[in-house]
Amino acid sequence: MPDARVIPLDPEGHQPTATPSPRSTFWDFVRRRIMGNYVVDDFGFDADLTEHLLLPPLRPLFERWFRVEVRGIDRVPSEGGALIVANHSGTIAVDSVMTQMALFDHHPAHRHLRMLGADLVFDTPFVGEVARKAGHTLACMPDAQRLLSRGEVVGVWPEGFKGIGKPFSERYKLQRFGRGGFVSAALRARVPIIPTAIVGAEEIYPMIGNISPLARLLGLPYVPVTPTFPWLGPLGLIPLPSRWIIEFGEPVHTEDLVGDIDDPMAVLELTDAVRERIQQSLYRLLVQRESTF
């Protein structure tokens, strides 16, 4: 630490430290957690826990393992609501977590991404608990609108399980985008839609098979078979170190489209337009990415 502690310390006096050392910040964090002295928002988002405990272990994965290149981060506004719509892939939703990481670490305003997830997520022990604490909530219209109207950046992956659970042979082919509920939410809240393309997540767990009887038995959308899972046991859970690009695209402004809220045709058209933009960006980025690994 070459530039730390320029003021000589007086062990008797109680000099307030101008910049707390990382270690004292850590102990302050532990103290807050033990005493219950932190704020959780209406959705259950625990910013203190997310910033100090949930995101840090993912940072090496983001920076060293996947070497994520973030593009167009300045297209996400520094203030106010925005809706990030991205492609979904990779068997496990690592792509959404990496997008959250990109937005928090690379955006000048260090914004938190508030994702909308399936109800299965919130009915699964531990997973649901962590998801809520990390800022995510159920994909339903009231929550989407509440978040957007509070000026949060909301993330949706409209392909859902169809996207992350698709076979490796269909990589980078966008699945159906549902009913366009996300478009209605953005229109109502008058926030921009930011089509976002994620390249690299498809290769982390290449899904070459699906044990569907087991999936039905367990009530899961799929039970994946990858080149390493379940053959290598827990080692099979290590994602392949693919090279990633996350590109936040040109925003679609919705202020002038408010009249279209009640027109299902217009909503579906806009949904398709967003989907098409993401698909085009994916093809372009795939060409630009020099190697998969």
């Binding site: 000589p8 004292s24 302050d28 103290r31 005493m35």
Partner: peptide, 19 residues
């Protein structure tokens, strides 16, 4: 926690002043 924190702070301080 205050006990642990102050002990940790002291250690951090010693480490810091030596550096």
């Amino acid at each position: 926690i205050s006990g642990v924190t102050s002990a940790a702070r002291m250690l951090t301080t010693r480490g810091g002043s030596r550096a």
